[in-house]
Amino acid sequence: MDLELQGKTAIITGGSGGIGRGLVLEFAREGLNVVSASRDVATGEKLAAEAAKLGLPGKVLAVATDVTDRASVDAMVARANEVFGPVDVLVNNAGGVAHPANLEELDADARRWEIALNIDGVVNCCQAVAQDMLSRKTGSIINISSNSSLLGEAAANVVHYGGVKGFVNSFSKGLAWEWAGKGIRVNNICPGWIVPYEADDVGEGSFWNRFGFETMGKPDAMEKALQEGTLYNMSGLPIPKLGRPEDIAWMALFLASDRSGYVTGQLISVSGGAYMP
């Protein structure tokens, strides 16, 4: 199916993480010009070089961005306009857990960090692209939430993170309703565990490098544990395979395209059947 996205402009936040890498490369493969917005601009530039080396039809531009700072987000959108033109698609992928902890032990700094990144970051980016989208009465916003907002067991030791991602779920639905008549669609993807193919695929600030690989093991070890039925929180998946970054990217591409033009305000779990409402 031709998604007819060639030449459109997409902003993808959190491009230096595992899911971000899949989003950036698959969107460029589909022919979109992509702004990879991340604090880790070095990893973003490596990704842009990789996309160019692969000969992907879409161009990738890495822009240093702190989504928790509205001025930084506005500057990134201005750069996108300068290089590629108006923004057609926004994927709010930046997010994360400060560190795992039982709720009674979670410190105030970690709470503020999670609120700023997962809540303020999404709101800042939606507001920053509003002029581009509302003035042309067209656009698609895809917010990346988490199965931690849907399942108690998926929020084990990250209860606060699950809660702030719950904000993303409600915010997406409300904004979808508010902007539907103005030509803007807003949808929401809740990933389960999405595992990079290689440990080197993620930037230094990714949760995988901060605590994920230590907790879950490196990708090869996770694949082996899944086959043996011993992988934490994943061995009972109805679809018995690891989720990969492109699984999120392919869903996001459909939601970005006019092939989903009658779809808005929806929450879709991409998690091998871990969540079935």
Rank of each mutant, 00 (worst) to 15 (best):
V63G: 05
L23D: 07
E223W: 01
S16E: 13
E104H: 11
L237Y: 07
T65W: 12
K59G: 06
R259N: 06
L237M: 15
C126N: 15
T230W: 09
I115P: 05
F27M: 05
E204Y: 03
A28Q: 00
N233I: 04
D40F: 02
T13N: 10
A130T: 14
D200M: 03
R244H: 14
R259T: 11
L61N: 01
A154F: 10
S16V: 03
V87R: 09
R244T: 09
M234F: 06
E114D: 15
C126R: 01
I115C: 07
N143L: 11
A62D: 02
S38F: 08
P57W: 10
E228A: 13
M276A: 08
I144G: 04
V63N: 08
S172N: 03
L151M: 08
V91N: 01
L117Q: 01
K218A: 10
V77R: 13
E104G: 02
L25T: 13
N143D: 12
T138R: 03
G217Q: 02
E204Q: 12
R136P: 14
Q131K: 13
L103K: 01
N92L: 00
A101F: 15
M251F: 07
T65Q: 00
P86K: 05
W179K: 11
S149K: 12
I115H: 09
G217N: 04
S260I: 11
N92I: 07
S172K: 13
R111D: 04
D107P: 03
V91W: 03
C126K: 14
G217K: 00
G229L: 12
F213I: 00
V60S: 09
G236Q: 09
T65A: 11
V87C: 07
G58A: 13
E45H: 05
T215L: 13
N81W: 00
E30A: 15
N233W: 15
A252P: 12
K218S: 14
F213L: 11
G205N: 01
L117F: 06
S206D: 14
D201W: 10
M234Y: 05
V129A: 05
G17R: 03
G236L: 09
M216E: 07
A37Y: 10
K59F: 04
N92R: 08
T230F: 10
E153Y: 01
L61P: 02
R29S: 12
L54G: 08
K137W: 15
G162H: 01
A52C: 00
R244N: 07
G273R: 15
L23S: 10
A49E: 14
R244G: 07
A274H: 11
P238Y: 06
V87M: 11
E204M: 06
G217C: 11
V63F: 08
L106N: 02
A10Y: 01
K165M: 07
S140K: 08
G18A: 14
L106H: 03
K59N: 14
G229H: 00
G272S: 13
N93K: 01
A71H: 12
D247I: 06
S140A: 14
A62R: 00
K173M: 12
Q266V: 09
F211Y: 15
G183L: 11
N209H: 13
E105K: 15
L242N: 06
F211W: 13
V89W: 08
V87P: 09
K241C: 14
L237V: 04
G273H: 06
V195A: 15
G7P: 04
I144N: 08
